[in-house]
Computed example of a mutant assay.
Amino acid sequence: MRTSFKRLFACCALLLAPNAWALNLFACEPEYAALAQELAPEARIFSATTALQDPHQIQARPSLIAQMRRADLAICAGAELEVGWLPMLQMKANNPKVRDGLPGMFYAAEQVDTLDRLDSVSRDMGDVHAEGNPHLHFSPQRLLRVAQVLTERLAQLDPTNAEHYRANFDDFSARWLTAIPVWEAKAAPLHGQAVIAYHSSFRYLFDWLGVEQAGDLEPKPGLPPSTAHLAGLLALTEQQTIMAVVHAGYQDRRGAQWLAQRAELPVVRLPFSTGQEGIDSLFALYDAVLEPLLAHVGE
């Protein structure tokens, strides 16, 4: 009888304990799924995209609609990165929790000062973002600020577990702030180097490390490299010392290879997010993105 009572008491205590896994979290990009994993590891976390997908070009598939319908919180980059598919996903999911302006819809770009904001845009400028560059996950300080605000959003939506989320943030913050100077010291040889890169995908990484993006493989954002544009970049390599031609894993590498072959430059394929090639955390992502660049310093 006593043993049965203890078991009953344990079951009741478990049921009454704070449920850190109570929330369903929908991440538009894998980097924000990884951040959610740091803050709410017991939550049900779904990433709508992978590191090998262009986050601009996603279809509102039935599987994504079903996940969005169940979400208590959607976490997205924002700055119109998902404008081509997220509004359709929100409409078809018909989940009132994750509508714009409500606590269940979280945009990382709204929490920080983004780079390259524009006062106005026009169609002839290409695929530009008036609210700034959305790929801010390669800015360690901005990402920490996003994590801080996201923690409070989780606490707001799930107040029973508020202290759990805050404790997880404190742990993440301590480890992140310890890692930043280590990364910066390791990346010091990159300061002042110049690269040609695809799009502005690594804008924040280059800004942080003091790397100059001397040229863009796209003639305009969103447009594939043309022969004339590549010829112009080839002329640029004759005028300026370029360390490498850089592209992300999801980007077409043909233009990069054409230019690199003729300019006798290395092509560097950088991981763009978590979830590929054994990169299972934001810490691993930062480690993995530095190594390929450092391998070509001084060549």
Results as ranks from 00 to 15, higher is better:
V211R: 00
A33D: 07
F169A: 00
A295K: 13
S273D: 14
E131Y: 11
R203E: 15
E277D: 15
L285H: 12
L190A: 08
L15F: 12
L293D: 00
P219N: 06
V245D: 04
F106Y: 04
F9A: 14
A235W: 06
P221C: 02
I58P: 06
H56G: 11
T178S: 13
V149Y: 07
K6F: 15
N19I: 04
L230P: 00
R145W: 00
Q67N: 07
R253E: 09
F46Q: 01
D127R: 08
Q240P: 09
E291M: 05
A295T: 11
C12Q: 06
G275C: 12
A66V: 04
A109G: 03
L205R: 07
W21G: 13
E31K: 02
D252P: 00
A174N: 08
T237S: 06
A179V: 01
S122H: 12
Q239D: 11
Q53M: 10
S4P: 06
A20T: 14
D127E: 15
N168F: 01
A174S: 11
E299F: 02
A77C: 04
G255N: 06
S4T: 13
F46R: 02
A10K: 13
G104S: 03
A235Y: 02
H129N: 10
A130R: 14
R203G: 07
V297F: 12
I58K: 01
P181N: 05
Q53K: 05
A194G: 09
V182P: 00
D287S: 05
L136S: 08
L177A: 00
R142N: 13
A263P: 14
Q111E: 15
L293F: 04
L136E: 07
R269M: 14
A27S: 15
T3C: 03
S173L: 02
T274G: 03
I279H: 02
V268D: 05
A256Y: 03
A48S: 09
V268G: 02
A10Y: 10
F283P: 03
T227A: 14
G101W: 12
L15Y: 10
R117C: 10
